[in-house]
Design a protein around this nucleic acid. Structure first.
Lengths: 112, 112
DNA sequence: CGCCCCACTGACCTCAAGGTAAGTACGCAC
DNA sequence: GTGCGTACTTACCTTGAGGTCAGTGGGGCG
């Protein structure tokens, strides 16, 4: 939503992911549908403001679905859409690469 | 290199990619080894300062290789390392996802 | 009665990433 | 000798993402 005339697909994908907590939010939602407060606990360090903000952006991009229950104590549930699921799948190899890197870094630290 | 105690592999991978021009740099280097000036032309919009900066970070993370030729008009060539190549491969599905999104956006714009 | 929890919203502030512009040292061309 | 191209570095400035904190309105609980 910032670049628009994208140079390549990667560019377009990164645009959706861009935001300090977005991948973590997507990752959390892949395991379970959550309400706002749960998400807040699952993504340690986010402020309420930014969590709301990034959830709205992800919703606008069609990645997450927001379901409001009109009950006395407010209840809102977030979940991944089909597109969000596809994005998560596409992020799989990147996560695996990062995991290998983490292992390598830890090993290096252990020997350093 | 900002988060360090990573929450997941994705986190560790995003950390490496983080920087306005890094994926574009990696993408450009996947197609060809380049000298500084070429890269500047291949990544439209980067300033020299930031290009140098991000190349150094990618080098520190073991993603790109920097080769200096000690000749009269300075010559430096950048290329992907093995790790960089693996990262690029891991970025493949994400790029494909983004490409589909681009196509969908264009179609929507064409119909709007 | 006061406080917490729910899911936010809005005003304000900070800080670092990135942009701008100039400087460096050398050679070639006009 | 003026200017361009090579590959940078440095000082300075701007911008906006994200952080902090306070407020909202109602219900349950002690």
């Amino acid at each position: 939503m910032g670049n628009q005339p994208y140079v390549c697909g990667l560019d377009a994908a990164v645009d959706v992911i861009d935001g300090k907590w977005k991948v973590l939010i997507i990752w959390a939602l892949n395991h379970q549908r959550c309400r706002f407060g749960e998400l807040r606990r699952l993504v340690p360090g986010v402020s309420e403001k930014v969590l709301t903000q990034q959830l709205r952006e992800l919703e606008a991009d069609g990645i997450v679905h927001r379901e409001i229950y009109d009950v006395k104590p407010p209840k809102v549930e977030y979940s991944l859409t089909g597109l969000g699921d596809e994005l998560n799948t596409a992020l799989g190899p990147l996560g695996a690469w990062g995991k290998r890197r983490m292992a390598a870094l830890e090993e290096a630290a252990g020997q350093g």
